[in-house]
């Protein structure tokens, strides 16, 4: 039981980092990124490829943290002259292109068979690393949120033209926040690869992106602690419903479908009665004269 609890906390920590990375893009800046699984996959594959070539783990981690911001800049390059709505399409497409590329490059990525990555044998170590990555990410996200930079991101979210009239370049802010967010997600990806011991294209689909989105929307976009709460609820619903299902004496396939249906029902009810999220973003009032 203790091992399972440790494992669940580890997974919650990884998905919380992903939720935070999307939150500073969408929750704070208003960037609709439907491909947030891409930097996560970049980090995971950097760890996997590095391991398959016989390099130590830190080379893979470094490669992931370098590749993610570079690819972020490449992906958002075509978005510079487009409205924010197009970010969704561009990022969604980029994530799928990456998944299909790794699927079709078996010599480097293992193709559909994927790559085996050295696992953390000690579950406590895995949890400690995941929590450490979460702590760093959370502190960074909090720092951004409370800084003048974060306030400008929120101005961008509310009105891009207003931000421009203040002499700020929206694309610079959007690019910089994307770079930070993608590095966070890449760090989560590296950690995840060493937790699961395996990377394959099937782990980085659109479904995974929407799990991150659900966590952010459920927890409260714009609120860092809220999205961590959202990620925890999503993962705990999945885990706890397995135990509840075990009590019910019904055919396993029916239970499995009921389990997913109940999961969906909880989310629908949440969105109906608490659309602002469980821990909504607090309204910030700044007195310009005092500041």
């Amino acid at each position: 039981m203790l091992d399972f609890a440790i494992y669940s906390i580890t997974i919650i920590a990884v998905w919380s980092v992903l939720a935070l990375s999307l939150n500073i893009q969408f929750g704070m800046t208003g960037l609709v990124n439907f491909g947030q699984i891409l930097p996560f996959a970049l980090g995971s594959y950097a760890a996997g490829i590095s391991a398959s070539l016989g390099y130590p783990w830190w080379i893979g981690a470094l490669a992931g943290l370098i590749a993610a911001p570079l690819i972020a800049l490449l992906v958002i390059m075509p978005a510079q002259r487009l409205a924010q709505d197009y970010w969704a399409l561009i990022t969604l497409g980029a994530a799928e292109i990456f998944r299909l590329t790794v699927l079709n490059a078996p010599a480097l990525t293992g193709g559909a068979d994927g790559l085996v990555v050295p696992r953390f044998i000690d579950p406590t170590l895995a949890m400690s690393v995941a929590l450490a990555v979460l702590a760093v990410t959370f502190l960074l996200a909090q720092r951004i949120s409370s800084s003048p930079y974060g306030r400008m991101l929120r101005v961008l979210r509310e009105d891009e033209i207003l931000a421009s009239t203040l002499g700020r370049s929206p694309i610079r802010y959007q690019a910089s926040v994307s770079v930070i967010a993608w590095m966070m997600a890449a760090a989560a990806g590296v950690t995840y690869a060493h937790i699961t011991g395996y990377v394959a294209p099937s782990s980085f689909t659109v479904t995974e992106t929407f799990i991150i989105w659900t966590a952010v929307i459920l927890g409260g976009p714009g609120r860092n602690i809220g999205v961590i709460f959202g990620a925890a609820i999503i993962q705990l619903l999945g885990v706890s419903s397995r135990f509840v299902a075990q009590w019910i004496d019904l055919p396993p396939d029916l239970i499995a479908n009921l389990r997913l249906a109940s999961f969906g029902l909880v989310l629908v009810l949440m969105f109906l009665y608490r659309p602002q999220g469980l821990i909504p973003e607090a309204k910030q009032v700044h007195d310009a004269e005092r500041n």
Partner: peptide
């Protein structure tokens, strides 16, 4: 004890971790 993997690697790992550990 039958566990659903949802045909997703992480859910398969969740299922296996529960079966082996709990």
């Amino acid at each position: 004890i039958v566990e659903d993997s949802e045909y997703r690697a992480q859910e398969a790992l969740n299922a296996a971790t529960k079966l082996y550990n709990v």
